[in-house]
Amino acid sequence: MPNSTDAAVRARRLLALLPHLKRGESTPLADLAAAVGATTAEVAADLATLTLCGVPPFSPLDMVDLEIDGESVTVNMDPPGLDRQLKLSANEARALVAALDTAGYDDDSPLRRKLAEATTDTVPSDEIARTVRTGTAPGGIADLYAALAGAAAEHDKVSITYLTGTTGRMSERVVHPWALVNRLGAWYLVAFCEGVGEERVFRLDRIRAVAQTGERFTPPSNKRMSVTPSAERLPVAEVRFVPGATLPDGREWPGVSLEPADDGSVIARVPYQGVAWIARRVVARLGEAEAVSPPEVRDAVRTMAAAMLTDLR
């Protein structure tokens, strides 16, 4: 027997499906599934349930009348009611606000204002914003986000101005935006970079600008959805943390493993993709951490810290 939460979600999904069912139209199940965030199998089961629903006296003319044929559904009659979309309920509005928060859409963004107009009047206008916050997005990335999402949807190549965080160098790159991925609250663009001829991951808050190129790309069939490199192929740095230091976790240093030493210090082993990346993290510990190996990382840490020190004088 399904639990009550599952049943409630499913019933709400059925109500959200009804306005998508237009008399005479044949719609792929996959499209309906994408529209309501369900699997094709779930939507097929939902539609089968809908054929059992209707209004009194429940004659054939009073029922939801549709036929599922393989991968699509054909609607024979408009549903006997609720053929227009309902306003967003309080919970749905909260979900949207929280989700849009992650991509930098603040209270005043045009998209948030449009969605507020589609929300039921029973929701106090500012209660959600004052009690739930996913605000991980840095300011000003909503426009970038929309531009990249639109380009990914249309398979448009774009030119991005990108700051490589570890080196501070800006670069112009023509990329094929494949996917947008959120890890621990930060959004990343997974894209093919024409300049290097390989796939690259770009952190959205380090993209300064996006411009259309007017060219299209063909998306690959097998897109990568992870933004953390496979640790197996990466070199490993050994970093010693002094006793009592705040230790890094997998959020800050992906793939890190920690091993206590006899003197109270802790040895961290962390896979790294670029020397500058790990060097900056060690320097940022301001003396709590020491790169033990390899020598190239140790040298990079010393050089970076010395340059910053010179800059301070």
Partner: peptide
Amino acid sequence: PFGDDLAIALGKLTDAGQTGPLAAAELAA
């Protein structure tokens, strides 16, 4: 925390037949 509500909200706001680009998330550590 609000995945089910988000999916249904999207169903109310967008039309069928408009599949979006690929996306994924791992919010919680």
